[in-house]
Amino acid sequence: MQLNVNGEIHKHQGDGSLISLLKEMCARPERTAVMVNGKVVKRVDWDGVQLKDLDDVDVVMFAGGG
């Protein structure tokens, strides 16, 4: 499955669920927040989200700032 993750093309190898994408990307998905196609997906809703080809996924984390 081909996804657009954080603005770049990403070849997804898993089952197409959001959880499998996050596990594929990072060691600690619980330290990220996620938007799919411009909509924030609450952590409690992650389980049910199935991605489609060419979906936009944004994954963010904390960064230093004032």
Binding site: G7, A27, V60, F62, G65
Partner: peptide, 13 residues
């Protein structure tokens, strides 16, 4: 304490 957000990147993990 304030904190900013950035896109996740493997190298910055």
């Amino acid at each position: 304490v304030t904190v900013a957000l950035r896109r996740f990147h493997k190298d910055s993990a």
